[in-house]
Amino acid sequence: MEKLQAALEKARKTRTGQGAMVPARHQLQARPAETVPETDALWQALAPFEVDERRLIDHLVVTREAGAAATPFDILRTKVLLQMRQNGWKRLAITSPMPGSGKTTIACNLALGLGRQRDLRSILLDLDLRDPSVHRFFETEPPHGIGEVLTGAVPFARNALRYGDNVALSMARHPETDPTRLLLAEDTVDMLDAIEAAYKPDVMIFDLPSVLVNDDTRAFLKNADCALIVIRAEDTRFAQFDTCEREIAEHTNVLGVVLNAYRYGDSPREAN
Rank of each mutant, 00 (worst) to 15 (best):
I106R: 02
I106H: 01
N109T: 08
N109G: 08
N109F: 07
L114D: 04
G115I: 05
R116S: 07
L120T: 07
L120I: 07
R121W: 06
R121L: 03
I123A: 02
L125E: 00
D126H: 07
L127N: 04
L127H: 05
D128W: 02
D128N: 15
R130C: 08
R130Y: 12
R130V: 03
D131K: 14
D131L: 14
D131T: 13
P132E: 02
S133A: 13
F137W: 05
F138P: 01
T140F: 01
E141M: 13
P143G: 13
H144V: 08
H144S: 13
I146D: 00
L150R: 01
L150V: 03
T151F: 04
A153E: 15
A153K: 14
A153M: 11
P155N: 11
A157C: 09
R158F: 10
R158S: 12
A160T: 07
G164W: 01
D165I: 00
D165W: 03
N166S: 10
A168T: 05
L169M: 14
S170A: 15
M171V: 04
M171H: 06
A172W: 01
R173Q: 14
H174N: 10
H174T: 12
E176P: 02
T177F: 09
D178F: 12
T180V: 15
T180F: 04
L183K: 04
L184V: 10
E186F: 08
E186K: 14
D187E: 15
T188N: 02
T188P: 00
V189C: 04
D190I: 08
L192K: 03
